[in-house]
Design a protein around this nucleic acid. Sequence first.
DNA 1: CCCTTTCCGGGAACACTGTACCCACACCGG
DNA 2: CCGGTGTGGGTACAGTGTTCCCGGAAAGGG
Lengths: 248, 248
Amino acid sequence: MGAMGAESSLPGRVWGRERPTPRRQAPTVGRIVEASITLADAEGLDALSMRRVAADLGSGTTSLYRYVTGRDELLELMVDAIAGKTEPAPLTGDWRADLAAMARGHRETLLRHPWLGAVMATRPALGPNSLRHMDHALAAAGQLTSDITLAAGVVALVGDYLAGAVSREVAEQEAQRRTGLTEEQWRAGVGPYIREVIESGAYPQFARRVVEARDQTHGERFEFGLACLLEGVAATCVSGAADPTGAA
Amino acid sequence: MGAMGAESSLPGRVWGRERPTPRRQAPTVGRIVEASITLADAEGLDALSMRRVAADLGSGTTSLYRYVTGRDELLELMVDAIAGKTEPAPLTGDWRADLAAMARGHRETLLRHPWLGAVMATRPALGPNSLRHMDHALAAAGQLTSDITLAAGVVALVGDYLAGAVSREVAEQEAQRRTGLTEEQWRAGVGPYIREVIESGAYPQFARRVVEARDQTHGERFEFGLACLLEGVAATCVSGAADPTGAA
DNA sequence: CCCTTTCCGGGAACACTGTACCCACACCGG
DNA sequence: CCGGTGTGGGTACAGTGTTCCCGGAAAGGG
């Protein structure tokens, strides 16, 4: 069936023919990672199957394994690719402001890529771009103290809080995406159970929390936690000139 | 095939016969949850398949669906079952000590059940036992302030840090279990890459961290973070009598 | 005691998943 | 022109969660 075969002599078949698809361009590792990120952003980590990625960039499934050893490596590459898209802001000399700014920036990134937190929670993130951000964070904390152990502790503390706080936020957001329910609808669903729980009287504080507490945005709650945290770091590191990390 | 059927007349067949297995006891939801927890503890969340759970308690796979609507609900029940196994310690009047004690207790639990953090990160945990702990935490924070919004913020802050910190710890522990490598072996594996990274000179702070920083146990790091955090809460809540959560 | 009805255990099937193996085709140096 | 090598990709395998349905046991009523 060559291109000049019998078929082309039938005039109508010329334009309606299925072309062999211009091979969408050779699937380099970069293109694979990029397609995977857009897919995961749009439909979540569960939708990120090797078959689906291959289909999205118009190649065969097993061809991906020429460029990536497996799904795990692909995830790792995705993390570092995202780390490579944001440039750390230059330091200002104010460790507190710098750490806060970094935390806010990372929060934005984690919210933009809802799968990121889950992936980073299971792997150490040693890619070059991730390392650059880590280095920058240590430099920021270095403005507070020259003790590298202490600085690392502070960075870990901020990172841990960031991971935990955003994880909650993303969980909610993703639950909505998966179930297709708005928050209103979800509230309506669990409403009866919550009411029952409250009226049981067994959880007075929780009841007070549900009934009386002001509604805060996730942003407000994050800022409150971040402020407490940095305040605590300041207090701990100033007072305990004699090693707050507890060396021997 | 009644018990007195033709087979029992063949003498040798009587004792060697396969008995229909005393139905291991009817698989109540409690037994299912218990089996699932021990399985997940031993072999991780990935090994927790419906087929495997059913096999472990000697029942058919699809029978489980009589007691549990699906894997997701099973996970939720597992979480609450674990919450039901620990009784919150009575309050002492010292909010700081109480919150710290709770955080430490929860850390132990999360380390004992390495899958717990991952599951709780995606679901809200509204089971009665989980609610009891939540209520207790709010009561502890209530010793600091009567503002329930502020108390909730503090509880969330501690919880977020807890989740983030333990997640890192568990990730390491689980990676070892999955790969079967000790930490030594893992270090040896990435060692060359780390050396290369350090010698590149592009990450001076990270290099300093690797080379100079004191090795801390996870426990020490957790305690440092917790101390900072509570110190910050104290500072923020004492000074800002006028609403540190930022109401209008 | 028998019959009926309800409930429950569980097998088969479906649409997926990651990935190892292997075959065929295109390109490229000799 | 011709062999070798690298690359695209189909097939197959051992799993996964879940739905549908069937057979049989227990329980309730006459």
